[in-house]
C-alpha cells in the first residue's frame, strides 16, 4: 500500500475524505452551472475547475469561523469549506433574492458573507489584497489571533494592489497569506506573457517574506505549505506568498472560447492531471475509498446539487424596487 502522505502532514483519514467531498462538490456545482448556462437558465458562469485541490487544501489549513477570507472569483472550493452550501451558490447563479453573497446583485463568483468571515468582493482584480492586509492590521491592533487568506490569479500578481498590499503586510509583519492560483492563463494570455520571473513565488523576496511554490493539483502538499504559512502568521512571523500551480481546465468564463488561444491537445494533456482524478486515485491507493464508496459520494453530491438547483430556480427574484436600497446606512 502507498504511504499515507496525509498522515505525515497531520491530516486524518476522515479529513482527507472530507476534502475529497468538497472538491467533488465544487466541481459538480460548477459543471451544473455550465449546463444551466448553456440551457439559457443562468446568464454567466466563472469556473473553479482544475483548481479545487488547491482551494480545498488551502481552506483546510484555516480555522473556519475564526480566520478571514478575501477570496477571488474562482474560489468556490474555499467558500464551500468555510460554510457556503450548494444552495447558496445556486441562489447566486440564478441571481435570486436569497443569494447570501449579494442578494442577486453581483455576478456569481463574487463571494461574501459576514457570517462566514468572507469579505465581499468585486470584479476589478486584486482590489481584495489590500483589504486582506487591512483586516490583518485591525486584528493585530486588537490583539486577535486570526489570519487572513487572500487569493488571486497569476495575472493579478501584476496589479499594483498586489505589490502595494504585499509591501504593506511585509513592513508590518501582518498575518496574511497571499495565495496565488497560477492556472497558467489570464483569460487568453499565457504565463510567459504575464511574468518575466520563474515563479510568482519569486515576487515575495522583494517584500521581505517567504514565497513558496507548490503543486496545486495536490491538496495534501497545498495543505502542508498553507499550514506552515498559517502557523508563521499566527505566531507573529508575518506573511507568506504561496503560488499553487495548476491548470484552468475550462474557458475563462461562459462567455469565453478557449479554442481561440490554446490547443485541445494541451487541454487534454492537463486533464490527465485533473486534481479530482488524482486525489480519487490516491484515496483508493491508501484504501480509504473504493468504487462503491466513490459512487455513494458522487450520488450524495449530485443530490445536493439537484436540490440546490431546484430550490434556487424556484426561489423569488429580488423586488425590482429593492434596486434602490443599501446605498447608505439607515
Amino acid at each position: 500500500m502507498t504511504t499515507k502522505r496525509h498522515e505525515q502532514v497531520g491530516l486524518t483519514d476522515a479529513q482527507v475524505l472530507d476534502m475529497y467531498y468538497y472538491m467533488l462538490l465544487a466541481r459538480k456545482i460548477d459543471e451544473r452551472q455550465w449546463l444551466l448556462n448553456r440551457a439559457g437558465k443562468v446568464p454567466f458562469v466563472i469556473s473553479c475547475q482544475g483548481q479545487e485541490a488547491a482551494q480545498v487544501g488551502a481552506a483546510f489549513a484555516l480555522r473556519k469561523g475564526k480566520d478571514y477570507l478575501c477570496p477571488y472569483y474562482r474560489d468556490l472550493g474555499v467558500v464551500l469549506v468555510f460554510g457556503q452550501t450548494a444552495r447558496d451558490c445556486m441562489l447566486s447563479a440564478f441571481a435570486k433574492a436569497e443569494d447570501p453573497n449579494s442578494g442577486g446583485r453581483q455576478m456569481p463568483g463574487h463571494f461574501g458573507g459576514k457570517k462566514w468571515n468572507i469579505l465581499t468582493g468585486s470584479s476589478p482584480v486584486t482590489t481584495q489584497v489590500p483589504h486582506a492586509v487591512g483586516i490583518a492590521l485591525a486584528g493585530k491592533m486588537q490583539k486577535k489571533d486570526f489570519v487572513v487568506y487572500t487569493s488571486f490569479g497569476e495575472g493579478s500578481s501584476n496589479q499594483g494592489d498586489f505589490h502595494e498590499g504585499a509591501n504593506f503586510a511585509g513592513v508590518h509583519k501582518l498575518p496574511v497569506i497571499f495565495f496565488c492560483e497560477n492556472n497558467k492563463y489570464a483569460i487568453s494570455v499565457p504565463l510567459k506573457k504575464q511574468l518575466a520571473c520563474e515563479s510568482v513565488a519569486d515576487r515575495a523576496i522583494g517584500y521581505g517574506f517567504p514565497g513558496v511554490s507548490v503543486d496545486g493539483n495536490d491538496p495534501i502538499e497545498v495543505y502542508r505549505v498553507m499550514k506552515e504559512a498559517v502557523e508563521r502568521a499566527r505566531s507573529g512571523g508575518g506573511p507568506t506568498l504561496i503560488e499553487a500551480v495548476m491548470y484552468r481546465l475550462v474557458p475563462h468564463s461562459s462567455d469565453d472560447d478557449d479554442r481561440t488561444y490554446r490547443t485541445r491537445e494541451e487541454v487534454e494533456e492537463a486533464k490527465k492531471k485533473d486534481p479530482i482524478l488524482l486525489f480519487g486515485q490516491y484515496l483508493k491507493e491508501v484504501g480509504l475509498m473504493d468504487e462503491n464508496k466513490e459512487q455513494d459520494l458522487l450520488a450524495r453530491v449530485q443530490m445536493e446539487v439537484d436540490e440546490a438547483t431546484e430550490y434556487a430556480e424556484n426561489a423569488p427574484y429580488p423586488a425590482p424596487e429593492s434596486t434602490l436600497t443599501h446605498v447608505y446606512g439607515e
Partner: peptide, 28 residues
Amino acid sequence: EERVIDTPLAESAIVGVGIGAAAYGMRP
C-alpha cells in the same frame, strides 16, 4: 505609532488597507 501609522508611499494601499480595516470594524 500603532494608531498613527506612517505608511509606505503607496496611495492605493493607504486607502485599500483602510477599507479592509473599516470593513472589519475599525474607524480609519
